[in-house]
Design a protein around this nucleic acid. Structure first.
Lengths: 339, 339
DNA sequence: CTGTTAGCGCATTCAG
DNA sequence: CTGAATGCGCTAACAG
């Protein structure tokens, strides 16, 4: 390994000078800078990250923690996409991206402890938002920089987060259904302890209320992602006396499952029931029919969260921010007019 | 930050003793071990990873590099799944997982340089295998520990890799089609410079040959993932004078696209054409019809690659290994008998 | 069984 | 503008 000393020796300067050149300190003559840089290149010098981190007490790394992977939810293409977004800025800023996956909540918690106490990362991005989350509380208590992708359940004003305006988005897409003449509209959401689910549910209800359509408990269903993307949910819906003509699903992947189940029961989309969902995953354009869905700009969620976090680590005391990524409805073929 | 010195002071021993306790050195009396441990807990001591890494010249971290993310291929749920597998062992071994995403090949290359030269990671897992890959060559030349998930194009005996027996798997599933009476069987593969595509294509041909079915160039199509999962490919196939009755697709997600396009053209699966594919992604069971596909045990690919890599970093000079993960055909509803 | 010494590679005082 | 000295937190000989 070639160190700062080696290039110092070759150049005939002191190690500290080399260090200053690396930092591009203004108090070094352009002359020597050039010489030192040339030597660095020639010797193939590369700064040792650990040594540097040790002295500056920072790691130039951010941790990303995924939701507990006990379930299949992780197979959602949502994740690679946020990671791409995050990765694009970490790369650009020359940060490392440390990923933390864990089967159980305990595993995740202990890993986060290691990341924080061991000075492995300077900040953390949480890819989920759960009620009474130990990790969130831990981070908050330690006053460790972190941002949530999604909306925090509690301490909303203390936490920096980046999210979509999910209630508005949900309201808009539900309204789209209403404008197409639908009045019997159901809601199929994922795990009810995810805040997204809640928000999108709220938007759905808002739209109905605004249109003067009474909400109906039987039309609002929470399906665990695990269960074949809402197979049960659909069966319930179809067994009702008045079957809905429109369904809003909170995720494209789940919508795919819903659609399959629907058609299995001889219900055709969009002919018999219209379907809308969220995320605009790649797969939503290759399903048949292609899904009308709201593009939440997953990549951008990642980009902004990383930027916000890095800013926060660089500048502690930065106040908590709330970053809302705009959404957009992508109209495709899963919705029909009715009446 | 509470350091080793602090707990030394409190316990009335020297820092080195504390260090030995951390390493659980046998040459420390159980007596003092207990005392030291108690003090550590009381003070909330946590080892500083950077300091430790600096002296032992290792980072207890492995890097995972994703394929260049210019295209949508990354939206394949394959990736979160391998990551989960890798993460499970890194967690268990108390390693960190550093993820490297990059839009372009250059970005990836420079990032890998940083990881290697900067001693950021002890080893690297490559989540792709490409011909004449700069990164692979770099790693090979530097003699830096790495393993490939998939099969290397060159230097196969110098590189540790974990893969499925893709040609056999492809042969088996194609044979399944043949046994069901199909003789006009097409192949739709992804990007042709991916080795998987090649191998699965070879298996496909092998099966045909063995059954005495002549292969036909027009039946073998490579579709870029980007293009709506093979829309073009399907159109080509359907415009042939003798339309195939069976299609093997190299990936579930692409198969979904193929299926949609097929049905758009009024061709029903499996009634008119049977479809088989690869990966057994979650989505393959919620499509309609559910896909007959080969389960390649993505999670296990991750686990084994991480294990192999860590072993290799711990024990340089470890010979290159070849780890084959068994596959299994999952029979579902996308295949019909014919004749 | 334990303490002392030295040093990992680098950034940062403080002198000059 | 540059060099010498010091220390980040920890491990690893070398002594005892």
């Amino acid at each position: 390994m070639v160190t700062i000393k080696d290039v110092a020796k070759v150049t005939g300067v002191s190690p500290s000078t080399v260090s200053r050149v690396i930092a591009d300190s203004p108090s070094i003559s352009p002359e020597t800078k050039k010489r030192v840089r040339k030597a660095m290149k020639k010797l193939g010098y590369y700064p040792n990250v650990n040594a540097r981190n040790l002295v500056v007490q920072s790691s130039k790394a951010i941790g990303v923690v995924m939701p507990s992977s006990a379930d299949k939810a992780l197979q959602n293409p949502f994740f690679p996409e946020v990671l791409r977004g995050i990765g694009s800025v970490t790369h650009q800023m020359e940060y490392s991206l440390t990923l933390s996956t864990g089967q159980t909540e305990d595993e995740i918690y202990s890993e986060v402890e290691r990341l924080v106490y061991g000075s492995v990362v300077d900040g953390i991005i949480l890819l989920y938002s759960r009620l009474n989350d130990r990790v969130t509380n831990f981070l908050l208590e330690k006053d460790f920089p972190f941002v949530i992708v999604g909306k925090p359940y509690e301490n909303e004003n203390k936490i920096t987060y980046v999210d979509n305006d999910n209630v508005t988005a949900a309201k808009e897409i539900t309204t789209h259904l209403i404008e197409k003449g639908h009045r019997k509209i159901a809601f199929i959401g994922g795990s009810s302890d995810l805040f997204v689910t809640k928000n999108r549910g709220a938007g759905y209800e808002k739209a109905l209320q605004q249109a003067g359509i009474p909400t109906c408990d039987k039309y609002k269903i929470h399906a665990e992602f695990l269960k074949s993307g809402g197979r049960e949910a659909v069966k319930n819906l179809l067994s009702l006396e008045t079957v809905p003509t429109g369904i809003m699903v909170t995720d494209d992947l789940m919508a795919l499952g819903v659609m399959s189940t629907l058609e299995e029961h001889g219900v055709r989309v969009p002919h018999d029931v219209s379907l809308v969902s969220f995320n605009n995953l790649y797969l939503s354009q290759i399903t048949r029919p292609a899904l009308t869905t709201v593009d939440v700009q997953i990549y951008e969620l990642g980009v902004q969260s990383a930027k916000a976090l890095i800013e926060k680590t660089a500048n502690k005391g930065e106040p908590a921010k709330r970053i809302i990524i705009p959404h957009q409805i992508i109209y495709r073929d899963s919705v029909n007019g009715v009446g």
